[in-house]
Design a protein around this nucleic acid. Structure first.
Lengths: 347, 347
DNA sequence: ATAGTTCAAGAATACGTTTACTTAAATATG
DNA sequence: CATATTTAAGTAAACGTATTCTTGAACTAT
């Protein structure tokens, strides 16, 4: 089983290695009796083709890389499954790596994946290696998910939810229920998701005459991690003048913030209202159901799988963008503000 | 960047490919000026060594496979991270695949990983390919996690929590609080985890004189999936004679059961008590905190990483077993049964 | 000064495949 | 029947690297 090569099969079947290869790949006519003999030898010796050698010769590994920022975020494992689901049918495999949102780790993994000669890459970038990625994109089929690369040299596809719209909708929802003092826990503003979601926040607020500028009091810039969600909630709630609601810009930070609230006896939504960006797993089993805008990880993953396959087959396709509009799902994490309170706010 | 080979570097630097290889691997003396020239050429041409070719020559891919039953179970992603953490330091990479507990998928992935010439395999088996795995184990470094392979030909290591003890502890806890009619939602009884956890259940029950035999009324044999947890809860709660508590044999089924309870207005623990095997993520944010025995995925993953590295370095090591004792963590999902109720039960 | 020694670096081979090229037997064609 | 054509299967080269073997220049020793 170990170390059995095409040569052993050839010897056993009394044919040349070329013939064995032809039987394995079934791409040339081989007379039935010889074919039979080869197949039998393969069976008897427990031969498995060496895909390392095969990849070297074919200049194709049938492997697609998927580099994500956080493998323990269920959102990405769901997406990975969705990608796998599509590419597996076409004979491709997926290799998933996690950067933990570290610049160096991303670079290291990119180089590793280049070395491993993957046929294509699906990337959820840290946003800190745009130059490298842009020049990589000139030589490797590349599909970005959720996070954009800022470079006009970039050649590839981009799939995302409409971050601005999604965040805008979240905030509009809070505004419609009378909230005006609205806090925000941002993700990294260095990546497109962080940047654009905040932009959606600012936009919605400005439409009711509230300018969110440098010294906006209820703002915390986190980094999409559980800890920063906790920190953000801590900071915002420790101010003397508290907001009535907080918008949180991803699922993981939402869990972090809720941990803070729960462990400090802060009631959601009575003490603070919450609205969040992104899916939460088994949300109906939580002590409170956050109102969210959802990203469909499965849909995005499927699309990413399709697009990378297209790119691998036809490297010349031009840049494409696919933007999904996220849907708002009401939970019970937002309290309606009574109008007398509103008036008191506006004095 | 694409297609730059050692040959291009050699030409650029005006040396032989052997010299370039020596510089890259830093394993032979190369005079400083030549070394410098080579390094510069590598830099200028954006050369990345082709690890496919390298693997073919070295007969080592520096890659370890991790085949799990369910990649969307946070328990396994945590374990994967833990494995990665250990092996990465030694220059190895991890490739994770998910069988979805399907026999054919496991076989397919095993063959794929053999083809890919991984240096070692960490396996959470479906339990349905024991023969194949046992003979594989004679040629490939192999570490089993959580689920055993039943074959005396098997050569490798095994890491697990003490399933019998863990389940026994869960049931004893319920018994100590006065429960006697205790339901059980099993995982697959074809795999060691399912089998042994049930064994622990039976053992604890028999110690208080309750024999769990073929027609035990509160038993559901599931398959570790969310759906089967839901189904199990449905079945058990639809009987006219309901139990006062249910033991659920993994984390995912627990979520499924809770979904049934919650959506059907069945209060935990007032209508039914729950105790479960396995970790639950962000448990403090749930509407009820199940009492559980925990598996430390991180510890198991680290150990698996260490052991597979040892096996790769010294293929001759004999079979080893590492069993961790799981710890019981009390939640608020179990109600104490008053003694008068107990008496009424015993008539 | 000559023979012996050392060693940096080049030449050549091998890893396990796939495939272009070659061969020889079988069949078709005039 | 002799020549042309087809084609099944074999031979050999190539993929990109690591490494053994070889070479020849620089050095040491006599």
């Amino acid at each position: 089983m170990a170390g059995v090569t095409i040569r052993d099969i050839a010897k056993r079947a009394g044919v040349s290695i070329a013939t064995v290869s032809r039987v394995i790949n079934d791409n040339y006519y081989v007379s039935p009796d010889i074919k039979e003999r080869v197949l039998q030898a393969i069976e008897e010796l427990h031969y498995y083709p060496n895909s390392v050698a095969r990849s070297l010769k074919n200049d194709a590994t049938n492997t697609i890389g998927f580099l994500v920022s956080d493998i323990s975020n269920n959102y990405f494992t769901t997406m990975a499954k969705a990608v796998e689901d599509v590419i597996h049918k076409e004979g491709y495999n997926l290799i998933v790596c996690s950067t933990e949102d570290k610049k160096e780790r991303e670079l290291e993994y990119l180089k590793l994946l280049i070395s491993k000669k993957i046929d294509g890459l699906i990337l959820n970038t840290t946003g800190e290696n745009d130059g490298f990625i842009a020049s990589l994109s000139e030589h490797m089929p590349l599909v970005l998910v959720n996070r954009k690369v800022y470079s006009d040299k970039f050649k590839g596809d981009f799939i995302d939810s409409d971050n601005i719209q999604g965040a805008y909708n979240l905030v509009s929802y809070l505004l419609s229920l009378g909230h005006r003092k609205i806090g925000v826990i941002n993700g990294m503003l260095t990546v497109s998701t962080g940047k654009e979601r905040f932009k959606g926040f600012v936009k919605a607020m400005s439409e009711v005459g509230i300018e969110v500028n440098g010294d906006y009091p209820y703002r915390y810039d986190g980094d999409f991690t559980l800890e920063s969600g906790y920190q953000g909630a801590t900071k915002i709630m420790s101010a003397s003048d508290k907001p009535s609601a907080i918008v949180i810009m991803n699922n993981v930070m939402t869990m972090g913030a809720l941990k803070y609230f729960r462990s400090n006896g802060i009631d959601v939504p009575n003490d603070i209202s919450i609205a969040a960006y992104g899916n939460i797993d088994n949300i109906e089993l939580m002590y409170v159901q956050p109102t969210i805008v959802t990203l469909n990880a499965w849909v995005i993953g499927n699309k990413a799988g399709e697009m990378i396959l297209e790119r691998i087959k036809n490297k010349a396709v031009s840049n494409r963008e696919v933007i999904y509009v996220p849907q708002l799902i009401e939970g019970n994490s937002v309290k309606k503000i009574e109008s007398n309170q509103m008036y008191s706010l506006s004095c």
